[in-house]
Design a protein around this nucleic acid. Structure first.
Lengths: 334, 334
DNA sequence: ACGTTCGAGTCAATCGTTTGACCGATCGAG
DNA sequence: CTCGATCGGTCAAACGATTGACTCGAACGT
């Protein structure tokens, strides 16, 4: 039953019309004028033969691929999983496919080479800095692109979340619980999200009339978080609460607290950014700030689809940011 | 600097040769005979103009897309993240792109429609049953396909891991620790992996000369695992160890143990299948069995690339399966 | 000296769709 | 009755790369 493959011409022959008619029927061309009866003959033939347009031919002719690219650092990171879901859903609702690639092994450059010319209509770069002038290369390739969730200096094509507000919400939560010595376990200084969360922390502390507690940076890993937390706890007046920039660090941070012989949340409260499912499995379950990651993915694709070659985009996606209170935060001990 | 786009003809004109020569140079056609000097002129022109073959035109002509598809249930599941990584790496090493889609919103059928005809050279189906005769539809579409990590009755096109052996390794570990009443918290009966792990459990128990402890099935979720574990613990002679088919269930199972006022591993040892990073963040860190998920992804792509239309594939991937001992297993209390 | 092979490329058909231009009836208006 | 519209389509030129067939001269063998 494996018929070679069905083309427009086959359908046209069966319906006894020109290929052009079939094409216009398939594409629902509004300028087409035909009898209802003819249209039905065409539709019947399409159905009968199981015709499906050949994507290659179509995109050769129209130079639209109906496909978007998304580049991420790592599939194992649940933050990107959320973004992918949103982007995929939006692409799907536009009748497009999303092809997601990761930095695994090769970098973005090699990846773009494999993608080749004319295969995608736009590229989303999530969580990638502008290593080695790639953005310039992308500009040359004449396909629209956008950075997602982080920026790079000098690049005016991004959409990000309001990490600053997320940080503020976390800090306000701690303040409302009665904490006054609130430290910040920041992310790596080169990460744009880390910088924005740190800014939010500082602003919120200022607003609350509190002195900025100690701030120490760590990379977004458990090991980094553990080391940083140890440092935070060995000061003369250790904090009673810590705003951690990232869940991976927070996992290590919690280990660090226990390592110092202290208990969460009795001795130290912890709150971190991004409400990953994993947070509820930690001990104690981690209080987090949830941000609309899927919406970010959706928005990225939407913008991409309507981007003119030289447009600049600098959008902070507004959307619900909420505190998910679990059991890693509590009022300070008396 | 945004030149429209460079075609073979442009390169040919610049190098003062025919398009055919350029094409053969690009594709390293071994039958081509040209002077070194000419080849260099062509290469120089390619470089100068920044020529990149148009994928659409190429695949229209050759009907090869240099792209593989991978369909998964959910990007947020770290099991699939591992598989994706392997598949992507292998695809990359073949100069191909991997496009991964998830069941989000729509099913495989709608997804295949969006992919369209001629966009991919092969399709990998991970963790999907054969809902509504899709495999038949795939067969008709004349693109090679393969199920990954699970089978469907009557379908002879799959590559899976040796879940049976993994289960045996888990059980043997418990036996070696001195456990005799070893229960099994199985996966949902419709899941192929669940069935194979259960079979492995039974075989290993038999080999150890132990009676099969109670077996109770749960779906692969924390809630399901918690409920199932409660049932296991309320028998007359509760088990001292439980082999759990899946980490998500194990997370719930651990909750269930605590809910019964017991402690892990003092009162109950727990071991689960698939060594996800997350396992080490649980409390206590979960002992697991690691299986070569990435290798499975790689193998899938490799097979796909060399699959003839009517080949049948039934492969159990052999590869290192190892116990990762953490702190959820210990000898039974005396 | 003449047929043959070889080196170095050239020619042009083809892949399957799309789309602007065109065309022959039929119909209504003047 | 004739001039335009309108209806219901048809025609054929792209899109960019691939590839089997072919050509044109020079060198070679005998």
């Amino acid at each position: 039953m494996k018929r070679s493959r069905v083309t427009l011409a086959d359908v046209a022959a069966m319906a006894r019309v020109d290929r052009a008619v079939v094409s216009r029927v398939v594409n629902k061309d509004p300028t087409l004028n035909i009898r209802q009866e003819t249209r039905e003959r065409v539709l019947a033939a399409i159905d009968e033969l199981g015709y499906r347009p050949n994507v290659a031919a179509r995109s050769l002719r129209t130079s639209r691929a109906h496909m978007f690219g998304l580049f991420i650092p790592d599939f194992a990171n649940p933050v990107y999983a959320e973004i992918i879901k949103g982007a995929e859903a939006e692409a799907a609702s536009q009748g497009c496919v999303l092809v997601t690639g990761s930095a695994i092994g090769a970098g973005l450059g090699e990846y773009m080479d494999r993608i080749g010319q004319g295969r995608i209509d736009g590229m989303l770069l999530a969580g990638a800095g502008d290593e080695s002038g790639l953005t310039a290369q992308l500009d040359q390739s004449a396909i629209p692109w956008l950075m997602l969730n982080n920026r790079s200096r000098g690049v005016k094509r991004y959409v990000i979340l309001d990490d600053q507000q997320a940080a503020a919400i976390a800090v306000e939560h701690l303040v409302r619980l009665g904490h006054r010595r609130i430290a910040h376990l920041a992310g790596p200084s080169r990460a744009d999200t880390a910088a924005r969360r740190s800014a939010g922390y500082s602003a919120a502390m200022r607003d609350a009339g509190l002195p900025e507690g100690p701030i120490v940076a760590a990379d977004y890993t458990p090991a980094g978080g553990a080391a940083a937390m140890s440092r935070l706890l060995t000061g003369p007046e250790p904090p009673t609460a810590v705003f951690v920039a990232n869940v991976a660090s927070a996992i290590g941070a919690m280990e660090g607290v226990r390592g110092a012989g202290l208990e969460i949340p009795r001795d130290v409260s912890i709150v971190a950014v991004h409400d990953l499912e994993l947070a509820s499995f930690l001990h104690p379950p981690l209080t987090t700030v949830r941000m609309p990651l899927a919406a970010l993915g959706r928005r990225g694709v939407t913008l991409l689809a309507s981007l003119k070659p030289d447009d600049t985009v600098a959008e902070v996606l507004s959307g619900p940011i909420e505190l998910i209170q679990r059991h890693s935060t509590a009022p300070p001990a008396r």
